[in-house]
Amino acid sequence: MTSFSLQAVPQDAASWKALAVRCEEAGFDALLVPDHPGSCASPFVALAAAAAVTSRIGLGSNVVNAGVREPILVAADVATLDVISGGRARLGVGAGHTPAEWRAVGRERPDVAGRVDHCLAFTEAVRALLDGEPVRGGGLDGEPVRDAVLEKPRPVQARIPLTLGTANSRMLRWAGEHADVVGLTGFGRTLEDGHQHQARWRPDQIERQIEQVRTGAAGRETPPELEALVQMVEITDDAEGAAAPHAERLGMSVADALAVPFVLIGTAGEIRTKIARNEEQWGITRYVVRQPALESIAESVFR
């Protein structure tokens, strides 16, 4: 069954609570908050406020920046959110790509291999702590924790759902083996501004990414779900015309731009058809869209 999550950040208390309520009423599966310290809200504080005015939707990070967070603190935040939400917390993790965020906590951003090493060690540690296991390791140059155990609070859920967001081959294989959801970002190399990315959006690139997940998931009785981070949503009768500027910017054909799962452009019927095709072709059953797309998705998918 296809599901949609909404990624958003609070601007003020009243509108944030109203957004959480609308998200739940519209039929979204979860409300998610990104993690960019210094440039957006603290995810778990925001999610705790949303928990107070909702009763069904999942509440999670999309995604925690593993590079600038400590496993025991993230585990405590997630467990606390799970308790106060009655078992609705989710954990999304990513390697972190913005140099300024690393510098803000007194660290220099490692190279890609270093960020991957750190993220996987971090994720394993948080997963173990949430599962009630003690963690033993070195410092930030190796395992990202020393000695830690999460005695209290204990989560309500037996297992907090874990999403790993990435386009890195090694992380995709690890996610295939261990995660509940693999968040396909389509992100390539980080550009010089430290925020934007090259796009790995060509159909052959997407297929290779999914193949890495399948390789990691070989032998699992229940493989992880695949989730696409949608960058463009537009309801229009002229899908090709709407997609053309984006395709040109990305160096892709219009047909390829309309085919990738990171773009939902077209009539409501065309978008529903594409969602069905994405599941058939790639096995993608989950989507994350950003706040401006809330009503478009509610109109095109949920009605």
Rank of each mutant, 00 (worst) to 15 (best):
R173M: 08
T267M: 04
I210G: 00
R189E: 15
I160P: 03
H246Y: 11
A199M: 14
T285W: 06
I206W: 04
L250A: 15
P245E: 12
L226S: 07
G176F: 10
R249D: 12
A268C: 14
R220M: 07
R290N: 14
L184K: 01
E270Y: 03
R173H: 08
A217C: 06
E225M: 13
G183E: 03
A259Q: 08
R173P: 05
L226V: 12
A259C: 02
G219D: 09
Q291W: 07
L184G: 00
P223C: 04
I265F: 04
R170W: 02
Q231E: 14
V213H: 03
E240Q: 09
V288R: 03
T267H: 04
L294E: 07
L294C: 04
L250Q: 14
G186V: 09
N278Y: 14
T236E: 07
A239N: 02
A259F: 05
M171A: 13
T285A: 06
V288D: 01
H178T: 13
I271V: 11
R290S: 12
V230A: 00
L229H: 05
V254C: 00
I265D: 00
G165N: 06
E227Y: 05
S169R: 14
R202S: 13
G241H: 11
V181D: 06
D204S: 14
T163S: 08
M232E: 13
L229G: 00
A244C: 04
E295F: 06
L191W: 03
L226W: 08
I210V: 13
E270S: 09
D204Q: 15
W282A: 00
G269D: 13
N278W: 15
A217L: 08
I160A: 06
A158N: 11
Y287T: 07
T166K: 02
P292K: 10
N168M: 09
Q291A: 11
Q209S: 13
T190L: 03
P224V: 06
A239Y: 01
V230C: 00
N168R: 11
